[in-house]
Simulated scan of single mutants.
Amino acid sequence: MSKILVIGAGGQLGQCLKTVAERRGISDIVFPAEQEANILNPDLLNSLLEKEKPAFVINCAAYTAVDKAEDEVELAKAVNETGAENLAHACKANSSTLIHVSTDFVFEGNEVKLLKEDDIAKPINVYGVTKLDGEKAVEAILPEHVIIRTSWLYSEYANNFVKTMLKLGAERDELNIIADQVGTPTYAIDLANAIFDIIASDNKAYGVYHYSNEGVTSWFDFAKAIFGISETNVRTNPIPGSKYPTKATRPAFSVMDKSKIKETFKLEIPYWRDSLVECIDKINKG
C-alpha cells in the first residue's frame, strides 16, 4: 500500500486508524503528534508533507464540540475550514491525495429520506456550517480528494455516546434519552477499515461519499441497545428533543444513502447493532 499520513492522530478516528493499521499489517503509515501536524500552521504542514512524501493524507483533525461551537465560532471555523484549506494546499504542493472526514451535520435533516451526496447541504448549526465550508475549500483547491461524510461516531477510544451511556448507566437508576432524532451510529473501526479499503482499491473516483454503518435508529433506541448488550440495568425514558434543549440545533433525520461508496469501492458495510456488540466487547475487555 502507498505511504499514508494521518492528521489528527490523537483523536478517536486517528486511534482507530492506528489499531486497524496494526491489525492489517499496514506499516508505511505515519501518525505525527499534534505539534508536528498543526493544521493551522501552513508552513509546518508543508514541511511535514515534503519530509514524509505521502501518497495519501487522511484528515481526522476537526473541531467537533457541537454545542461549544455556537460560542467558539472563530475557533470552529479556523479548524474546520481554514485547517482543511491549509491541508488541501499542502497536499496539492506535494502531489498527495486527501481523504477528508466530514459529517451528516451538513444537512438540515428536516425530511424523512435517505440523504444522497448531491442533496442540497443546508446546515443548521455552526459546526455543520464550518464542516461544509471545509468541504468546499478542499473541493476548490484539490481535485484529488475523497470527502467522507459520517455520522454518530463511537468506538472504544476517546469520549463518545456509547462510553457516556455505559458510565451513566452504571451510576444512575433512570435516564431520559432523546427519541425524535434519527440517524445511524458508526463504529469508527469500521470507518477506518473502509478508508484503508478505499486507498487499497487504487480507484481514483474522487468526490464526496457517505459512510455510516447500515440501518436506522434513534438516540433512545441506540441507548437501549447499549444497555441491552452490556446487560446494564437502568430505566430509560424516551423524550422529545424539545425537553432537552441544547445550544446547537440537531438534524431530526440524517440517515445517509451509502449506495455510492459501496458500489464505487465494493465495500461491505456492517449493520450498526453488530458493530456495537463488537465495540462493547472491546470495552469490556479493557
Rank of each mutant, 00 (worst) to 15 (best):
V6G: 04
A9L: 06
G10I: 03
G10T: 12
G11Y: 00
Q15P: 09
L17Y: 13
K18Y: 10
A21T: 08
V30M: 11
E34H: 14
E36S: 15
E36L: 14
A37N: 01
I39C: 02
N41Y: 10
N41I: 03
N41P: 09
D43V: 14
L44N: 11
N46P: 11
S47D: 14
L48N: 06
L49P: 09
E50A: 15
K51E: 14
E52V: 15
K53Y: 04
V57F: 02
I58F: 06
N59D: 13
C60V: 08
A61W: 03
Y63D: 05
A65D: 12
A69M: 10
E70S: 00
E81K: 12
T82S: 12
G83K: 10
H89Y: 15
C91G: 05
A93I: 11
A93K: 15
N94K: 08
N94Y: 07
S95V: 10
S95G: 14
T97K: 13
H100G: 00
F105Q: 12
V106N: 07
N110Q: 13
L115G: 04
V126H: 02
G128S: 06
G128A: 04
G128W: 03
L132R: 02
D133S: 14
V138D: 07
L142D: 02
E144I: 05
H145P: 07
H145V: 11
V146Y: 15
I148K: 08
Y154H: 10
E156T: 12
Y157P: 01
A158S: 15
F161E: 06
M165D: 10
L166E: 05
L168N: 05
A170S: 14
E171C: 03
D173N: 14
L175W: 11
A179M: 01
D180Y: 04
A188F: 08
D190F: 06
I199L: 02
A205S: 10
Y206E: 07
G207H: 09
N213G: 00
V216R: 13
V216G: 02
W219E: 03
F220I: 05
A223R: 04
I226S: 07
F227R: 08
S230I: 04
E231W: 04
N233A: 13
R235H: 15
P238W: 01
P240D: 02
G241S: 14
S242F: 12
Y244E: 14
T249W: 01
P251R: 01
D257E: 11
K258H: 09
I261Q: 08
F265H: 11
L267M: 07
E268T: 00
I269E: 02
D281Y: 09
I283F: 05
K285M: 15
